Amino acid sequence: MSFILHTIWEVLKGVPNTIIISIVAMIIGLVIGTIFAMIRIAKIPVLSQLIVVYNSFIRSTPLIVQLFVLYYGLPALLLFFNDQLHTHFNPDAFSPLTIACIGFSLHAIAYLSESMKGGLQSVEYSQIEAAKTIGLSKFDTYRRIVLPQAFGYALPNIENQFIMLIKGTSLAFAVQVTEIMSVSHVIANEGYRFIPVYSVAAIFYWLLAIVLELIFSRLQHRTVRYLTPTS
C-alpha cells in the first residue's frame, strides 16, 4: 500500500507538465487551425495548397518522429545560422518542455484545422447573406455569427482531439520532458513493479479525460443556442 501511495504522489508531480503541453497545444492549434480552415474555405491560392500539404504531412507521420525532428533539429538549425549567418543564437534556448509544446501544437493545428473546416462548412450560407443585408462587416459576421456556430458544430471533434493530446503527451518523455509517463517509467524500472505503476499512470490519464468530458459537456450546453436548426 505504501508503494502505491508513493507512486501516486510521484506520478502526480508529472501531471502539471502533461496539462501544460495539452492546453498550450490546444489553444495554439485551435487559433491557427481556425485561420487555416478559413484560408482553405476561401481557397486562397498557394496558401490553401500549402496548408493541404502541411496537414497531410503531419497527419501521416508519427508524432514521436515529429518530436525527434524538433528535439534534434532546432539546435542544429540554430548552429547552422550561427555558422553561416554569424548570428549568436543559443542552441540550448529551447527547453524540452518548450520543444514538446511546439511539437504538439504543430500536431494539433493539422487536426483542428480539419475539424474547424467542417464546422465552418456546417454554417448555412444564408446566414452570411442575411448578415450582409443588415450591414454587418465581414469581421463582425464571422465573430458574431459564423465562428460561434462553427465552434459548436466542431466541439465534439475538438473534445476528442483534446483527449488525444493528453494521451499523446505520454510520448513527451522521449524528448526528456518530465510528465506522467516519464515519471512512471522511472519508478517502474527502479522497483520492477511495472503493472501497479503503469496502472496508476493509466488512472491519471483516465481522470484527466473525465474532467475534460465534464468541461466539454458544459460547453456544449452553452453553445447550443448558437446552433441553427437543421430542419
Rank of each mutant, 00 (worst) to 15 (best):
V69D: 07
Y72A: 09
S113V: 13
F104G: 13
I35R: 02
V65S: 00
D83F: 11
G119K: 00
S126Y: 08
A130S: 12
S105F: 04
Y54H: 09
N55T: 10
S115N: 15
S48I: 01
I109M: 09
L74Y: 09
K117M: 13
I109W: 07
S48C: 03
F104I: 14
Q84N: 14
F94S: 05
I102P: 02
Y54Q: 08
T98Y: 08
I41R: 03
S48T: 04
Y72G: 03
T98Q: 11
M38D: 04
A42P: 03
L106Y: 07
A42L: 13
K117Y: 12
V46C: 06
V53H: 06
I64S: 02
L30P: 02
Y72K: 13
F94M: 05
L120I: 14
V52F: 09
Q49E: 14
L112I: 10
I128W: 07
A110D: 05
S48L: 01
L97F: 11
A100H: 00
P45M: 07
G118W: 11
V31C: 08
N90Q: 12
Q127I: 09
P45C: 10
A100R: 00
Q49F: 08
S60I: 10
S95N: 13
I109R: 02
F80E: 08
H107F: 15
F94Q: 01
A42V: 06
V123R: 00
